[in-house]
Design a protein around this nucleic acid. Structure first.
Lengths: 179, 179
DNA sequence: CGGCAATGATAACAGTGTCAACATGAAAGA
DNA sequence: TCTTTCATGTTGACACTGTTATCATTGCCG
């Protein structure tokens, strides 16, 4: 298994190293050179796969978003019919943030989640659940507002906990996200 | 008005320059050297007033927090008795974030707001308003949870708008923060 | 007036993102 | 099979950053 001049799949290796870094350190200490070093490649090789640092960060953000969506979908699927799927996905959102603080931050500090034309799977689920909480025949505007409020609530809880403003306590998460 | 060797009040000048920078650019581009340059002083003079960059940033965060509290207090004072003071302070919170995006972010990304022993003025107001929304004799825990939910809601709205996840539209703010 | 502490300046170091120029090698065309 | 091409890596350099050690100036206090 000789070290060959060409890496094979440097792009994927860099992203993996980036995610690995975010598991243990925060996003500000993420350095292209360090990433390249950890993968065993020169600093500038990165530029064959990403135009600049923000592009690499954006790719990490996409991965973070995908993982968050996965966590939510899984939570909704595993939730017993006796409890609200809405609350379950909301709690999963906060739990993901607490378990992946750096990645979560980077995901949202980076780029808009929803490309305006094509709504995300997660966004669709969100609206459905919001509609279910309102009286039948609620206007689309009301549904949208309810959905955004729910999103903002869990996002705010996550952020305030990550920033140390309120205790990052799973029990508190339960208490704050109503069934 | 000769340029003297000693500056007079370099610390204040640096903070002012920092706030000025945050008015037009984001926090990642905030550089000690650039700040020093803009004030007309050598790069290392900063270290006579702040042990390191994070200390300067923390000072900026304190200022940001104070301004946010001011904006909220003013909003509560100017709010007509016909409308909820709670909603008014919440909307002021989001408005402040939209008007001072970089400062707002830095304020919360930096250090915990509330030193656990001594509750902030803003925190006290928050709890009062939360209690007013609950039936009389609600438990302290319920009041606390209601207060945190309200904070998280406005904080989430602010963050999602700053991150471009939802439209940074003042009308939407009105719609999302219930009276 | 003399000295001291506060406050400044210079020089240097390690580290960063990024560009230009050059090197390698895998795959495609002859 | 030989050759050429082009994606991929490398080296070297530049401007910038935070930070430290060392030296310079000066306002204030006795």
């Amino acid at each position: 298994m000789k070290e060959s001049y060409h890496h094979g799949d440097l792009r994927a290796a860099l992203l993996e190293a980036g995610l690995d870094h975010l598991n243990r350190h925060d996003a500000e200490t993420l350095s292209l050179r360090a990433l390249a070093r950890s993968v065993g490649v020169s600093a500038t090789a990165v530029y064959r796969h990403f135009p600049d640092k923000t592009a690499l960060v954006a790719a990490l953000a996409r991965e973070g978003l995908a993982r968050l969506a996965d966590a939510q979908k899984k939570a909704a699927a595993e939730c017993r019919p006796s409890e609200s799927a809405f609350a379950a996905t909301g709690r999963a959102y906060v739990r993901f943030a607490l378990e992946n603080p750096a990645l979560f931050r980077l995901t949202f500090a980076s780029a808009p989640v929803e490309s305006a034309d094509e709504p995300t799977e997660a966004a669709r689920m969100l609206r459905e659940n919001a509609a279910r909480r309102l009286p039948d025949g609620a206007s689309a505007g009301h549904v949208e507002a309810e959905a955004l409020r729910a999103w903002a609530l869990v996002h705010g809880i996550a952020m305030l906990m990550l920033d140390g403003q309120i205790a990052a306590d799973p029990d508190l998460v339960e208490a704050l996200i109503p069934a």
